Simulated scan of single mutants.
Amino acid sequence: MIKGIHHINLLVRDLDDAVARYRAQLGLPEPEYERLPGRGVETARFRIGESYLVLVMPTAEGEPARVLAEQGEGLFLLSLTTDDIEESMKQVVSGGGALTSEAPRAGVSDWRIIDLEPEKIAGGRIQLANSRA
């Protein structure tokens, strides 16, 4: 089911400033940028080994903007890699969990993602992801 960490999302107020700090302090290369108007965010993602570190700046109202306003910058969610997102969704539900939607949605780079209901998994913001082949 779970193969590893797909990506970690960190909320930031200023994407350009955050990218500059991450590059300077961690020696990361230039990231790939992407806007997700449907989610109301702009992103910058760094490839780190087999995973990604994604900086997320809210640009409109929505969950990322609400969490940033309430909790400030920092960890937003952990995304776990799965080869078969539909089977993993079934596992979550059969194991007593719940999903926040009926079907996966398109994320950054057309990744297929679906969020787990935080209250059912000890409060963590966790999602399942797989990349389209």
Rank of each mutant, 00 (worst) to 15 (best):
V67R: 12
L75D: 15
E87M: 00
A129R: 03
R35Y: 05
A106Y: 02
R21P: 03
A24V: 15
A129T: 10
S109A: 13
H7P: 10
S131F: 04
R132K: 09
P104C: 00
W111K: 09
L68T: 11
E32T: 15
E102Q: 13
R66D: 12
L53W: 05
K90T: 14
F76R: 12
A106P: 05
D14T: 09
I5Y: 02
E119H: 01
L36H: 04
A18N: 10
A18T: 13
G123V: 09
R45Y: 09
Q91Y: 02
R45L: 11
H7C: 04
P31M: 07
P37L: 02
E32I: 12
G27W: 10
I2P: 05
G95F: 03
L28Q: 04
L116W: 01
A18H: 07
T59H: 01
D83E: 15
R45D: 14
G40Q: 09
L53Q: 01
P58M: 06
P58H: 07
R132P: 14
T59P: 01
G96T: 11
S101Q: 09
R66S: 08
L128K: 06
G74E: 14
G96N: 07
L116N: 04
Q71H: 12
L68C: 08
E61I: 13
P118E: 06
T43A: 03
R132H: 09
G62K: 06
H6M: 07
R112I: 13
S51D: 04
I8P: 14
G40K: 15
R21D: 01
Y33L: 12
G49Q: 02
G74I: 09
E30L: 11
L15P: 14
I121K: 02
I5A: 02
E70C: 00
P37V: 05
L53G: 00
L75R: 15
R112L: 14
E119T: 04
S88F: 06
R47W: 08
R23K: 03
Y52W: 12
A60T: 13
I114D: 06
E102L: 03
V108G: 05
I113K: 01
A69W: 10
A44Y: 06
P104L: 00
L75H: 15
S131Q: 09
I114S: 03
R23W: 00
D17V: 15
V92N: 08
L36T: 07
H7S: 01
D115K: 07
R45C: 13
I8L: 11
A122C: 13
R47V: 15
R112W: 11
T43N: 06
I85C: 08
S131H: 05
P37R: 08
D17T: 13
R39L: 10
E102C: 01
R132F: 13
E73S: 13
G97M: 02
D83R: 15
R45G: 13
W111N: 15
G4D: 08
D83G: 15
G123L: 02
P31V: 11
R47A: 14
L55A: 02
D83Y: 12
Y33C: 13
M57V: 12
E34L: 00
R39V: 12
L11F: 01
E119Y: 00
D17Y: 11
P58G: 04
L68V: 12
K3D: 00
A106C: 10
R47H: 07
E119S: 02
P118S: 03
E117W: 00
L10G: 01
S109C: 09
Q127D: 11
E32W: 00
G49L: 03
